Simulated scan of single mutants.
Amino acid sequence: MRYIWLDDYLLKKKGVTKDLQPDWNWIRYHVGGKMFAAVCLDTDNKPYYINLKLDPVRGDYMRKMYADIIPGYYSDKTHWNSIRPDGAVPDDLLKDMLDESYRLVLENFSKKRQREILDITCCGSECSKCGCYGNICQGCNELCGKVFHAPPGKACPIYRCAVNRKHLTSCAKCEELPCVIWRDTKDPQLTDEEFETDIQNRIRNLLEN
């Protein structure tokens, strides 16, 4: 197979696991327990197809553009597509299609579950890196925003705005990012410079996912 980077590329995505389905001899890649890609192996364990999911309109277009992309092998042929592993599909295009497949499967989960899979909060913070996590706070996703620094019994202002009011998975899709609410929820232990760095880190976390 010419796409020798594929395994590393997929396993670097948040929440991805892989297994071998022995009856089919497929190496399957899952996000949140749902398959979004597979490498189909022959009896000599050599890849003969890479399966992935695409929007039906794009999938149909890709099949017309590339002879090495065909309707999904042993899969729903409306949504799934198979790519020949030694064909002429450019590496960057295959990466883009794998990204889309990952996104399509991830978006089928609830917004709360998506944040859990990505191990990120709606504001881009990583609860697992917080010194309070597991002690006085169980994390934003687990508590639906009602974290230790929020008003008693209420979600923090960012969570209330992004998730409860705008029904977004995170602030990543908000046109006001970073908004005045972000500015008003400054950690008093941070200097202004540290706070700006924190904001940029959180934005990067959101946009990378």
Score class of each variant (00 low, 15 high):
G33I: 11
K154E: 14
P56L: 10
N108R: 14
C122F: 11
Y49P: 00
V89S: 04
G87T: 05
T121E: 09
N201Y: 07
N45H: 13
I70N: 13
P56K: 07
S125L: 14
L54T: 06
L54F: 13
R165I: 06
A37S: 15
P157C: 02
T185L: 01
A155I: 01
V57G: 01
Y3V: 00
G131P: 02
T17V: 10
N201H: 11
S75M: 15
R165S: 12
K46E: 15
L93N: 12
T169W: 01
T78F: 00
D23L: 11
D192R: 11
Q21H: 11
G139T: 04
P152F: 07
T191M: 06
D92L: 14
S170W: 02
C127R: 07
P151V: 03
G87S: 02
F195C: 09
L104S: 12
P178E: 11
K13N: 06
T43S: 14
P47G: 07
C122A: 14
I120G: 08
Y3P: 03
L190H: 13
Y3A: 01
D96Q: 14
T121N: 12
C156T: 03
P188M: 05
E208K: 14
C123K: 05
L143R: 04
M97T: 03
M62Q: 06
N45F: 12
I69M: 02
V163R: 02
C130S: 09
P151S: 06
C144G: 00
D99V: 12
S170I: 05
T197N: 14
I136Q: 08
C179G: 08
E126S: 09
N45R: 13
L104D: 09
F148L: 00
T17P: 03
D92V: 10
R58P: 00
A150H: 02
A37R: 12
C161I: 06
L118R: 15
I70H: 13
M35E: 14
K95Y: 07
C174D: 03
V39Q: 05
T197F: 06
T197L: 13
V39G: 06
C130Q: 10
G153K: 00
L10M: 08
K173G: 15
I136N: 01
Q189D: 13
D60Q: 12
K112C: 00
V89P: 03
G33E: 12
K77A: 10
R202F: 09
R84C: 08
S101V: 12
E193K: 15
L52V: 08
G59S: 07
I203K: 11
R160H: 11
L118Y: 10
R84G: 10
C122D: 10
V16W: 01
H79G: 02
D76Y: 08
R202A: 04
N81M: 09
N25W: 00
T191D: 04
D19G: 14
N81P: 06
E116W: 03
Y61L: 14
Q138V: 00
E194Y: 04
D192W: 08
G32A: 06
R63G: 06
V89I: 05
K173F: 12
V163F: 00
V163L: 02
R103H: 15
K12V: 01
R58K: 15
I70G: 09
C127D: 05
N164A: 09
S101N: 10
A88L: 11
